[in-house]
Design a protein around this nucleic acid. Structure first.
Lengths: 252, 252
DNA sequence: TACGGTCTGTGCGGTATCGTACACAACTTA
DNA sequence: TAAGTTGTGTACGATACCGCACAGACCGTA
C-alpha cells in the first residue's frame, strides 16, 4: 500500500523532486483525490483551502471577466502544482482553476503546506522554480493570444494537452476548448474541421483523437515548441533532485 | 547626502518596505542610475546581472516572438522590481524589459541581491508578494488582449501609465504604444484620434497629454480598475511594513 | 531658412473573427 | 422506442483589425 502510494506520488514530478526526508514529513498529509472533468478547484478571489499536485488530471487556469468571458492563462499537469499564490502572501488567487481532463491528484491542506513551505528549503526552491515556469508559460500564452490564428492556437493547445496524457484521445467538447482559448465555439468547430480534413485528428461528440502529431506541429505556431522546451527544462531540473532515481512517467 | 539617498529610495515602494536593519545592509550596494527611454534592461534569455527598483522610470515587460512581434505582458513602476526571475531559480528570463518612461531607479548586483534574498526573510516575503501581483497583472493583460478593443486597451494603458507619473504628459510615440499593445501603429493613431476628438487627450509628435482622466475611465474596459485595485492592494501591504512611517510618494 | 528624418493621418482592399440563427446528429434517460 | 438534452455543422452579414502605400506635418539640425 505504501509502495502504491509512493509510485502514484511519483507521477507528479514536482512532488517527486522533494527530498526524501522532507517527503516523509509531507506524506501523512497527502490525500489522493479524484479530480473529475469540469470540477472547479478554486474560483478567482477564493481563499485557498488546499494545494493540489495533479498526477493524471490536467487543470486549466482561467481568467474570468465581468461579463463571463474567459481566457486560459496557463495549464497545469503533473509537472506542476495548483495554489502557488498561497506561498506568495495569501492574497486571493487571480484566476479560476478548472479541471480540463479528469484524473487524479494529491491534495494537501493549505495550512500544512504553508508551514512546510516556510520550513523546508527544497520545497521552497521547487515551488519558486515552478512559479518561474508558470510565468513563462503565461507570457507565451498572452502573446500567442494576440498574434496567432485560432487554428494555430488550437494546434498548440492540443499538442500541449497531448503531452500530458498517456493516450491520444482527449475527452473534451469544442465548447470547452473555445472557452479555454477565449473564442467562439464556432471558431473551434471550423478549425477542428480543417484539422479533420487534413487527417490530423478525428472526433465525435466530446472525444478528440489525435492521428498525426507531427501534422499538428506543422500547423501550430512556434509557441508549442517554446512551451515544450520550458516544460522540459523544468522537468530536467526536477529530475536532478528527484528523491528516487528509478521512477519514470510511464504507468497508466 | 544620506538623507537624500533615503528619501529617493522611498520612491520605490517595495524597497521602502524592507525592514530598517535589513535595508542598512542593502544600502551600500544600491546604485542610483538613469533609466533612459528605450533602453533595454535585459533581453529574453539573458542571464541577469542586476536587479532594478524603478523610482521615476516605468519599464515594460514584453514577450518577443520569433518574427519580432511584441506584446506587453506587464508594466513595472515604482511599486515593483525588475529581475524577479533571479529569485526563482536563475533560469533565463522569459521577457524583454524596456524602459517605457525615462527616469531613475536603483540597481543592485544580482549576486548580492540573491544572497540577501536567501538570508533575509522580509525581503523574500516582499518579493513573493510582488511576484503574486505581477502574475495577477499578467493574467489580466492576457485576457484584456483577447477580449477588448484597441481603444479600450489604449485607455487602460494610458491610465495605468498616468498613475505612475507625477505629470499628466507622457513622452511616447504612437509607434511605441503600438508595440506595447501588440497592434499596428495605425490602430493606435485611429484610437488616439477618437480620444482627441472626444477631448480626453491631446498630443503632438511624441507627447501625449491627458486632459480628462475620468473620460478615459469611461471608455476603458474593466481591466483598468481591476489592475488599479491590485496595485493598491500591493502598496497598502507594503505600507504596513514600511521601515519609515512618514514617507510618502509626493516628492518630484 | 532649408533640409531631412521621424511621426502622424488617411485611404483601401483583404481577412479573421464575431454574433446570431437554425438544422441536424449523437448520446442519455425515461 | 420515444423524448429530451447536448454537441456539432453551416450560413451570412457585420466589423475590427490587418497590410500596405503614401501624403503631410512636425521638429531638430545644419
Amino acid at each position: 500500500m505504501s509502495i502504491t502510494f509512493l509510485q502514484e506520488t511519483i507521477h507528479n514530478h514536482l512532488l517527486a523532486a522533494v527530498q526524501a526526508d522532507e517527503f516523509e514529513r509531507l506524506k501523512p498529509h497527502l490525500e489522493l483525490v479524484q479530480m473529475p472533468l469540469g470540477s472547479i478547484l478554486y474560483e478567482s478571489g477564493d481563499r485557498l483551502q488546499h494545494i493540489w499536485f495533479p498526477t493524471t488530471a490536467i487543470v486549466s487556469l482561467q481568467y474570468i471577466m465581468e461579463d463571463g468571458a474567459s481566457t486560459e492563462i496557463a495549464g497545469v499537469g503533473n509537472e506542476g502544482v495548483l495554489g502557488v499564490s498561497l506561498f506568495m502572501g495569501g492574497a486571493a488567487t487571480p484566476s479560476r482553476a478548472i479541471v480540463q481532463t479528469g484524473g487524479c491528484g494529491y491534495r494537501i491542506k493549505a495550512g500544512v503546506m504553508l508551514q512546510e513551505f516556510n520550513r523546508v528549503e527544497s520545497l521552497q526552491g521547487l515551488s519558486l522554480l515552478y512559479i518561474q515556469a508558470l510565468i513563462s508559460q503565461m507570457s507565451l500564452i498572452a502573446a500567442c493570444n494576440r498574434h496567432h490564428s485560432i487554428e494555430q492556437q488550437l494546434c498548440r493547445w492540443l499538442l500541449l494537452t497531448l503531452d500530458r496524457l498517456t493516450s491520444n484521445e482527449l475527452i473534451m467538447t469544442q465548447e470547452l476548448i473555445a472557452s479555454m482559448l477565449g473564442v467562439r465555439r464556432e471558431g473551434i468547430t471550423e478549425a477542428a474541421g480543417n484539422l479533420k480534413n487534413a487527417g490530423f485528428i478525428n472526433y465525435r461528440r466530446g472525444h478528440i483523437t489525435v492521428l498525426d502529431r507531427s501534422g499538428l506541429e506543422t500547423l501550430s505556431c512556434e509557441c508549442y515548441q517554446v512551451a515544450k522546451k520550458g516544460f522540459d527544462c523544468l522537468l530536467s531540473t526536477c529530475a536532478t533532485t528527484r528523491h528516487s532515481p528509478s521512477q519514470g512517467y510511464g504507468k497508466k
